[in-house]
């Protein structure tokens, strides 16, 4: 039986206070999204009252200004498709290049690792010109580009795990008459599943929130949520603070919902993804 120590009680009180500090920004934004737009900037820490309460007006204005439903759809479509494509193709690639150590494959592996530290600005201009030239400037082309950008981290994580799988299982499958494709799908991929969840979560967190890449590639025709939020700031002389608050809340709700339902996997995935580094 563990006895409760004084220091533990003090730490507990401290953590409660700190949790509150961590939640203040989110609570503030939610509260302000229900205030009329003129009473937000100056008194953000005052809860809405009978004179400042504006109901869902901010939400109606914000949705009308930004086209939020369509932004939500594109964000969801691009994120889900890209993550699916990344998990599928990079797991195959990682397994293949880890098991076939030709000079080309080894070089490719190091290029994938190398790409992780290169800042986006290095390839930003040339990449968006090439994407334009190849007609990749649409949501489907963007998914393909995300495969290229996501490949570095994803191949790296998958490779780290493939190295720990005993090769004898794959040999047995080959001897039993599986071809390479069947061996991967029926023997290797099931063992990669926990890693696949890690890769999926890390890529989801990145792609859902990504602003600059989709803005440069498809921003003028298709808005994702971050682009829609930024548009609210850029598109007008003065920002409608009410609409802005409502859009911030609408952007946070899907993320927090995703987090609270998949929390176990997210935290595990984040920890597992880093250990391999």
């Amino acid at each position: 039986m563990k006895k409760t120590r004084i220091s533990d009680i003090l730490i507990f009180v401290f953590l409660v206070a700190l949790s509150f500090v961590f939640l203040i920004p989110i609570i503030t934004v939610v509260a302000n999204s229900f205030k009329d737009k003129f009473s937000i900037s100056q008194t953000p820490f005052v809860l809405p009252n009978s004179t400042t309460f504006s109901g869902v007006e901010n939400y109606i204005n914000g949705i009308a200004d930004t086209g939020f439903p369509s932004a939500f759809f594109w964000s969801l479509f691009i994120t889900l498709s890209s993550v699916g494509v990344i998990v599928l193709f990079t797991s195959m690639t990682a397994w293949y290049i880890t098991r076939n150590k030709t000079r080309f494959n080894k070089t490719l592996y190091y290029l994938f690792v190398f790409s992780m530290i290169v800042p986006f600005q290095m390839v930003m201009f040339t990449m968006s010109k090439i994407a334009n030239l190849l007609r990749l400037d649409n949501p489907f082309g963007l998914i393909f580009i995300y495969l290229g950008f996501g490949a570095g981290l994803s191949v790296f994580i998958f490779s780290g795990f493939v190295k720990s799988i005993p090769i004898s299982l794959e040999e047995a499958a080959i001897i039993d008459g599986c071809n390479v494709f069947q061996t991967f799908w029926h023997v290797v991929f099931p063992m990669l599943r926990p890693t696949a969840i890690t890769v999926a979560i890390l890529n989801t967190m990145w792609i859902w929130n990504d602003y600059l890449l989709p803005y440069l590639i498809i921003g003028s025709d298709y808005k994702t949520i971050p682009i829609a939020v930024q548009y609210l700031k850029g598109g007008y002389g003065s920002v409608d603070m009410g609409a802005m608050m409502a859009m911030l809340v609408l952007s946070i709700v899907p993320v927090v919902t995703f987090y609270l339902t998949c929390q176990k996997y997210i935290i595990k995935g984040v920890a597992a993804g880093a250990v391999k580094g």
């Binding site: 790409s115 393909f144 495969l147 494709f181």
Partner: peptide, 14 residues
């Protein structure tokens, strides 16, 4: 099948 799709995307994007 295994490497080419990722390799092409990686080449074009990066």
């Amino acid at each position: 099948v295994f490497v080419l799709p990722t390799f092409v995307a990686f080449s074009i994007a990066f």
